[in-house]
Design a protein around this nucleic acid. Structure first.
Lengths: 252, 252
DNA sequence: TAATTATTTATTGCATGCAATGATATGCGA
DNA sequence: TCGCATATCATTGCATGCAATAAATAATTA
């Protein structure tokens, strides 16, 4: 962004939220943050408002700002919205893609394929999984870019971001359990992903808008189903709330 | 909203933008507005930031805030996004609607039907058209509410609002010409609308998600096509820019 | 002892003075 | 007269003191 102070504050706080140093529900007091960053409360306040826009922070008059907590209902709403926008974007991408756009998508796809093969063979997939996630993001970004609609792209990115911090938080709770049991399922899911991704790519390549849309819809619906099921397994309800309490420990 | 000052300022400025008293591109100087409303610059600033979120105002560091201007590209992006969200919402509504939801939709539809009949018969459709627009909005809102997704609903409403002020501004330019020629076309369009709306309603009534989505998609695509065509007719390009210049006269 | 009220404290909200910046106007030289 | 450098001015950005509010704590009474 620019070099004005409220953007400095914005970047600082945003980063710490995305790094999960500021966990869900953590109070964000203008006073403290201003001292910490070395700016005035005014700049911090403006930054917090901007973060509220991004959906990372919630502010209530006189009660201050907190890192946004999500209940299961909000998470579902968010996923549905992402489904609507991203499938539509895929349809647009099929119509509006240029040759370089397609190249970009193809490249991301091939990176993913390489990583997937290595993951299926590897013993410890942890570091590769991180890379795979990144490649996946690149793939989706490439499609959004090819759709040639900045507004939709921006909104999807926003949703991705929120999704990511929520997912990150949940996986922290979920990871201690069945790593062995997950291995089989994980491989299965990876293969499924690649099939989906290739179907999407092919549809966009042959400029089949309806197919691209349908494939993307199916793909994301799959991801959502997985996540919600996983969530339901981990605990019956109030997951976000529980996490909030736990994260309180990390208060800086 | 609440009774804090920045919400007062927010409501005030928002209202004037929606009433087209503050036209597109108009500079919004914190100093003047603060004096006018009787608050400090701080509160006005916060209000302007909130309005930026709504998409009604654009702010650039050191350059201040202006009522947002839209070029044809942004307008198209916005329409596409609305298409994606609203058709998805229709699909959700078909799945999630309750009996009262359906009742609400039906009521709005019947109001529209009554108005449409009267418009087709009337000489001067101007005042009825305004009512019809309102009923149409109610119809769409009822569907969004039945979809049971607050996030999507909120976003669609936001888009509607921006759309409305843009449309209002454009229609001001467009209305002087062919009122006679439009009459025939207008009637045709009204009938088409009713057909679409009834198809959407029926799909939701029988909980046919796919059909509801498809019908809504077609409906909105029709609206968009109409608008963009109309826009292209009115002038070749730079419509928003031209309007901006004209509205400058209204500087308070 | 429990509950309710009063008091204290911490934090947000608001206003205003000063500094930084971008735009405009002025003046100088070619 | 035109172009360019410089100065002036208006407006935003920033910081800080004070007021308003809500939460936490203490005190008082039934």
């Amino acid at each position: 962004m620019k070099d004005v102070n409220y953007n400095v504050a914005y970047d600082y706080i945003r980063k710490r939220i995305l790094n999960a140093e500021f966990g869900a529900g953590r109070p964000l007091m203008a006073n403290l943050l201003a001292l910490e960053i070395g700016l005035s409360r005014t700049s911090v306040r403006e930054a917090l408002r901007q973060l509220e826009v991004d959906g990372l922070v919630s502010i209530r008059p006189h009660l201050g700002a907190r890192v946004k907590t999500m209940d299961i209902r909000e998470l579902r709403d968010l996923c549905e919205m992402r489904l609507a926008l991203e499938s539509h974007a895929a349809g647009l991408a099929a119509r509006n893609r240029t040759a370089p756009d397609l190249q970009e998508i193809k490249f991301a796809l091939e990176v993913m394929r390489g990583l997937t093969d290595r993951i299926l063979a590897a013993e410890d997939p942890q570091p590769l999984t991180k890379e795979l996630m990144d490649a996946d993001v690149r793939f989706h970004i490439a499609i959004m870019s090819a759709a040639k609609n900045e507004l939709i792209k921006k909104e999807i990115l926003r949703l991705h971001l929120i999704n990511r911090i929520v997912a990150g938080a949940f996986s922290k709770l979920a990871s201690p359990e069945g790593t062995a049991l997950e291995k089989e399922e994980r491989n299965h899911r990876c293969r499924g992903w690649m099939v989906s991704h290739e179907a999407i790519y092919n549809a966009i390549a042959r400029q089949d808008s309806a197919a691209a849309k349908a494939e993307m819809e199916q793909h994301i619906q799959g991801i959502i189903d997985n996540r919600l099921r996983h969530l339901a397994q981990t605990q019956e309800a109030g997951a976000a709330r529980k996490l909030t309490e736990e994260e309180r420990v990390y208060v800086n």
